[in-house]
């Protein structure tokens, strides 16, 4: 490829930012993600103002309340009779939030959804569901791939045959069909936590074959190296050889696989939740937040319903950049 090396700083910064937000969702999100406001169904994003209706400037940004437009059901206009300044770290002790406004005004920076829930809050909590599901599933898949690939590559024989044929079989189906078929045999109605755990385990268990095959190849090649045979001559045990000589190169491969696998796993969770087979309501996931977009009225009138797709694209982009930057750097050091 071209000589310039891909940037590493911005993907790391973006991913760190997104994960921090996800971790701190309880504080970052302005509202409880399940809290419904029946008067504000599909309300557009709240506008931040510095100049009020009378033309006066304010130092602190403020918002107006949405009120239903007269004679136009489903539409909202700003009630300019009272201003509500933006407050940092507001609320009572114990339930403080990073950003907020005083009730009865509400701060919906990304608008609300069809049940009047705050989209930003759902997005932030959904990040927790989706980002960590992807991370967990990828970690599980790579760990399984490392274990199985190392064993297969080191000991060979029937174990190797079994694992390789098994992984071929798992890869003989299109990934999403395999995922749906496997999901078909698991309970459909589950609590949010159980469903999340189930998805992570399922994705992890289905995701090991490519990692295992790569690791196996690396271990197989490393096992034939002279220094492994030499260490055997010094009386080294299997455990010593695996730990000291075979696991380090396998781990390097595993790490690159991890970075490649995480966005795939995030997408898999998003897709499953979108299809209604993942984490169920009211727990938000980036996937289930996209479901309203399949209905015509939403598409036609509520453009902000598309906002949940943006962090997903940003996440995938950052992971891809991280992967290509990491690959380049590994190749330089190798």
């Amino acid at each position: 490829m071209s000589g310039r090396r891909p940037a590493l700083a911005w993907p790391v910064a973006v991913l760190a930012f997104l994960h921090l937000i996800a971790l701190g969702a309880d504080v970052v999100a302005p509202y409880d993600p399940a809290e419904q406001t029946r008067e504000l169904i599909w309300a557009p994003p709240t506008k931040l103002h510095l100049v009020d209706a009378a033309g006066r400037w304010h130092l602190r940004p403020f918002v107006y309340r949405w009120r239903p437009a007269d004679g136009a059901p489903g539409r909202y206009v700003e009630d300019t009779s009272r201003i509500f300044p933006l407050r940092l770290w507001s609320g009572e002790a114990g339930t403080r939030r990073l950003l907020g406004v005083e009730p009865p005004a509400r701060l919906h920076l990304l608008g609300t959804d069809g049940l009047g829930r705050d989209q930003l809050s759902r997005l932030v909590h959904g990040a927790r569901t989706s980002l960590f599901a992807g991370l967990g599933a990828a970690l599980l898949a790579v760990a399984a791939g490392l274990l199985l690939g190392t064993l297969a590559g080191y000991f060979g024989g029937w174990l190797d045959d079994l694992l390789m044929r098994g992984s071929e079989l798992a890869m003989a189906l299109p990934a999403l069909y395999l995922l749906l078929a496997a999901r078909a045999f698991l309970p459909l109605e589950l609590g949010p936590a159980a469903a999340w755990g189930l998805i992570v385990v399922l994705l992890g268990l289905l995701g090991w074959p490519p990692a295992a095959r790569l690791v196996r190849g690396v271990v197989l090649a490393a096992r034939r190296r002279g220094y492994v045979g030499a260490a055997r001559g010094f009386g080294a045990s299997h455990v010593y050889l695996l730990r000291r000589h075979l696991l380090p190169p396998a781990l390097a491969v595993g790490l690159t696989q991890l970075v490649l696998l995480v966005p795939q796993m995030i997408l898999a969770e998003v897709t499953l939740s979108f299809l209604g087979l993942g984490v169920s309501e009211p727990t938000p996931s980036w996937g289930s937040m996209l479901v309203p977009l399949t209905s015509y009225p939403v598409l036609a009138a509520h453009g902000w319903a598309f906002l949940p797709a943006l962090p997903l694209v940003l996440t995938v982009l950052s992971y891809h950049q991280l992967a290509s930057a990491g690959r380049q750097r590994l190749r330089r050091t190798a």
Binding site: G226, R232, F234, G235
Partner: peptide, 14 residues
């Protein structure tokens, strides 16, 4: 095997 040490041809490879 520790008592019978092989110093192989390909030193770098080991």
């Amino acid at each position: 095997r520790r008592r019978l040490q092989l110093v192989p041809q390909d030193a770098a490879g080991t």
